[in-house]
Design a protein around this nucleic acid. Sequence first.
DNA 1: GCACGCCTCCAGGAG
DNA 2: GTCTCCTGGAGGCGTGCC
Length: 933
Amino acid sequence: MPGLDSFIPDSQSKRRQPPRLSGGPSGTGRGPAPPRSPRGERPPGGVADELEREEASEPEEVDPDTEAEAEAEGIPAHEAEEAEEIIAQTKFEAETPSETGSCVLLSVSYSGNRGRALAKLYDLERQRVVFWYDNTGHQPYLLTDMRLDELLSSEAASHPGFDPRGCREVEKHDLLQDKAVTMTKVAAKDPTSVGGRGTGIRDLLGERSWEDRIRYHECFVYDRRLVPGYYYRIRGGSLVPEAQPVPTDALKKAFPDATPAFLDSLTEWFPIFSSPVPDYRRVAIDIEVATEAQDRVPDPQVAANPVICVSAVGSDGRKQVLILRREGFDEDGGSAERPKELPEDASLVYFDREIDLLREVFRLLLDYPIVLTFNGDNFDLHYLWKRAQVLGMRREEIPIVMGREIALLPVGVHIDLYKFFHNHAIQIYAFGNAYKELTLDAISEALLGIKKIQLEKSINELDYLSLANYCFRDSLITLRLTTEHSSLVMNLITLIMRISRVSMEDATRQGVSSWIRSLFYDEHRKGNYLIPKKEDISLAKGGSSTTAVIKGKKYKGALVIKPESGVFFNVIVLDFASLYPSIISRWNLSYETVRCPHPECRKNLVPDTDHWVCTKRVGMMAHVVGLLRDVRVRWFKPKSKDPSLSEEERGYYKVVQQALKVFLNASYGVFGAEIFPLYCLPLADSTTAIGRNIITETIEEAKTLGMKVLYSDTDSIFLHQPTKEQISSLLSWAESKFGIDLEIDKRYTFVTFSGRKKNYLGVLDSGIVDIKGLMGKKRNTPPFIKNAFVEMTQVLREVKSPQDFEAAKSKIKAIVQRCYSDLKARRIPLDDLVFKVMISRPLDRYDKTTPQHVKAAKLLEEKGKEVKPGDLISFVKVQGPLGVKPVQLARIDEVDVDKYVGHIESTFGQVLEALNIDFEEIVGVKRLDFFSR
DNA sequence: GCACGCCTCCAGGAG
DNA sequence: GTCTCCTGGAGGCGTGCC
């Protein structure tokens, strides 16, 4: 990766330049230019005197039934949320220079003050945010199939936000019908007039309205071909993208069989992936609030208690703790020593008045381009916002813009890392499931190896230094989560922004389906395609043509072959590299190509379904997914392992590779998700059907070649003692037959199958023990069983041959035996007996059954402890009618030993069965039984 | 009233 | 709030028996 210094804008490049954004006619070259806005001129520096949201301005005043209302309007709750544009009208502004050096586009929003799009840019030289207001006259709009004259005489024209001067007919291509259509652009004076809550122009147009749920700032990004996270500069008041050299020859070499269209796309995308990410100047903030009850989080909607401490740790070296002086506490800490963990150069600043402390925090929020928090949306920033008002500050003095469950900044960007790490795709594909719990403590321990400061007393009782130390650590951890591994997290966020075209705020808060939606919407606008309505896709494509194995699912998924129980030495695992994305690409699957309108394509059937695929045009999803897949596999993945590159360069390529993986892995699933606006069941259905067909034929071929197939799940096959020749014939057969790479994934010295699907243990040739699906690995298994299980795996990893097994078996028996007798003798401490199970919804929403962890949680609630979704409940199984108790309330003598014996048996049983060991023989039950008969 | 079988719910995992 | 497939434990309910 070129370092920042070597990132030289290549303005002389002969390569097609990205369009220049400027006033006057649109430079996008796609359709006629929009007319100049009546407000095209820059208004005088008007300063609005209120922070305002589109609808209710106090989040706590938002009707809790808003979602229900939206549903009643026929809008699914999530779409109502999506359609909401948080419009800031604030007095806080950044500089609006007419010339800058290199900047990164952080975010696009709509300025209520100016009535136009606002771009927030990170100026690399200033290390601050600069503002750029749209000067191209772009207006909010939607599309209708009415002709212009019909529109002008329709009810919509009477809407106060309707702008007749911006309306005009446009040509679009309708992919569903594969034909050109004439639509009319319906211009609005502001974003609210398009949408609003049941009062927008779209509501007057009803079914004759299209593209009306795209938030304005996104619409602006797509139409102006902007790429958030990419480099721009302001030149003569206009926003100009910076060109980046593309290694055309090297790319041609890496993609020898690429079509011209593919190379074109590659050239366009390449700078997006490969340009470096700046080291953003940023600050992490954490607050502490005085609380009387230890188990209760102070309510930010009331903000009744004082903010007593705020820490700020910056990437620029800032180490600061702001402390409120309180009665009964000594500044020099009395006899208290400065905690060792608190760095000498951390400055402690004391305040007599809370309001002054808050003002200082607000100064920081305005100073930094990026503010990091952990749970700031729901707590820290929300609390500061409300608390400042409780103390008498006016809204316009507070540099925080509150939406529902989201806290934005008027100048910089707020990243709530809790939300980012909460993202399931990030958790699994980017961090390999390294952290399992969504707390700052658990995440930082997993990723950084440091923990929060453990408190002995409640926050209220801490002396100043201990409080400062505690608070400081939280900010330090929060910052370090973004600086670790050469700023992996910031790089990842920036790449997600670039690939999906979403602002930094959205990239860190929305899920994969939003990212992919945005990516495809942009692709539609780029190609001048009409973005279809979800109902129209469903109507044209119908549902699935298969029946799921599991009741309640919409279509059939992957194939899993049941393995035979036992131990097998010398096992090779082959798998198809990113099978589903490859299928989408190779089979040309896309919502418009699956069940396309052309009669002549109907012969091109998907195996085992009645779906067919278009033979006439390249599918949009197939093209984009194929591009992302190929560029990952053929360029970034090899680069991430290239020993001739520096570690930092390899690190960057690894992040690109991981970001692409996140998109690819979700690219199939979204089409089977009803919440996805391009939802298309036949597409998801076809993908898995082709997958089943491929793996089935591969298994057959392996058998034909004389190999023994032990097991198979979705895209992998486990082969027993295959020869090199057998493998290479199978690999080349698969490559030529399907055009998808079949690769050697793993080599096991041996594998033990329990006979169950998704359930085995193997020792890799490297000595690593690979465990899949066994209970001993699951989070909700009590520690004492887990520990014994780990001990057993250590024994197994020493096994190199069938002869070694006899010795291993007796060691394993001894481990299980000891585990059992310790339990029986009640020698195991309570903490090692806990089951940790997550609460997935509010307690009152468990209305069908009451699972054990919920029973335990209810007991905790009775004791005054708050229980929220996402909390892990630690409980033990006890005798008595309820059967469980939270560990905090249980005694060792009431433990239900028999229940735990059952758990030992089933956990170890999964391995013992394969080794032909009888559990009952180990614990002696069988013999007793024998004598008692 | 109670044991038993059967089905469903729930959590956690594989891919 | 990408998907389906799979396992194990417990809850909940109907059935048959005493």
